[in-house]
Simulated assay, not measured.
Amino acid sequence: MSWRMPAEGEPQVRTWMAFPSAGYSLGDTAEEHHEARSTWAAVAHAISEFEPVTVVVDPDEVTYAKKYLSAGIETVEAPLNDAWMRDIGPTFVLDENGKLGAVDWVFNGWGAQEWARWDRDAKIGKLIAELAGAELISSPVVNEGGGIQVDGQGTVLVTETVQLDPGRNPTLTKADVEAELARTIGATDAVWLPYGLHRDEDEFGTRGHVDIVAGFVAPGVVIVHDQQHPGHPDFVRSKAFTDLLGERFEVVKVPAPKTIRDDEGYVDYSYINHLVVNDGVIACSYDDPNDPVAAGILADAYPGRKVVTVDARPLFARGGGIHCITQHQPK
Rank of each mutant, 00 (worst) to 15 (best):
M1T: 09
S2E: 07
S2N: 13
R4D: 05
R4A: 12
M5L: 09
A7N: 08
G9R: 14
E10S: 15
R14P: 02
R14G: 00
G23M: 06
G23C: 10
Y24D: 10
Y24E: 12
S25I: 05
D28Y: 09
A30N: 04
H33D: 08
S38H: 11
S38E: 13
A42V: 05
S48R: 15
P52T: 04
P52S: 07
V53W: 01
V53F: 00
T54H: 06
V55F: 03
D60Q: 10
T63A: 15
T63V: 13
A65D: 10
A65R: 13
K67G: 00
L69D: 08
A78Q: 07
N81I: 03
D82G: 01
W84M: 06
W84E: 09
R86L: 08
R86V: 08
D87L: 09
G89S: 07
P90C: 01
P90D: 03
N97C: 05
N97R: 14
N97A: 14
L100P: 12
A102W: 03
V103T: 10
V106A: 10
F107W: 15
G109Y: 02
G109W: 01
A112I: 02
A112R: 15
E114D: 15
E114C: 03
W115S: 14
G133H: 06
E135V: 15
P140H: 12
E144W: 02
G145Y: 02
G146R: 03
V150N: 03
D151Q: 11
Q153I: 05
V156W: 07
P166K: 08
G167K: 09
G167S: 07
N169M: 06
K174C: 05
D176P: 07
V177F: 02
E178C: 00
A187D: 04
A187N: 08
T188Y: 03
A190E: 01
A190N: 07
H198T: 08
D202F: 13
F204Q: 14
G208E: 03
G208R: 07
A214M: 01
G215I: 01
V217S: 14
V221M: 00
V221R: 14
V222N: 11
V224R: 07
V224N: 07
V224G: 06
H229A: 13
P230M: 00
P230Q: 00
G231H: 00
P233D: 05
P233M: 04
P233V: 05
V236E: 13
V236M: 03
T242C: 09
L244R: 15
L245Q: 07
G246E: 06
G246L: 03
F249K: 06
F249V: 02
P257R: 08
K258C: 01
R261G: 10
V267L: 10
V267R: 11
Y269T: 04
S270W: 09
I272L: 04
V276H: 04
V277T: 13
V277R: 04
D279K: 14
G280H: 00
Y286V: 05
Y286T: 10
D287C: 06
P289A: 10
N290L: 10
P292F: 11
A294N: 11
A299T: 13
D300T: 15
A301R: 08
P303S: 14
T309I: 04
A312V: 06
A312P: 06
A312Q: 05
R313T: 15
F316H: 11
R318V: 09
G319D: 00
I322R: 10
I322N: 08
H323L: 01
H328M: 12
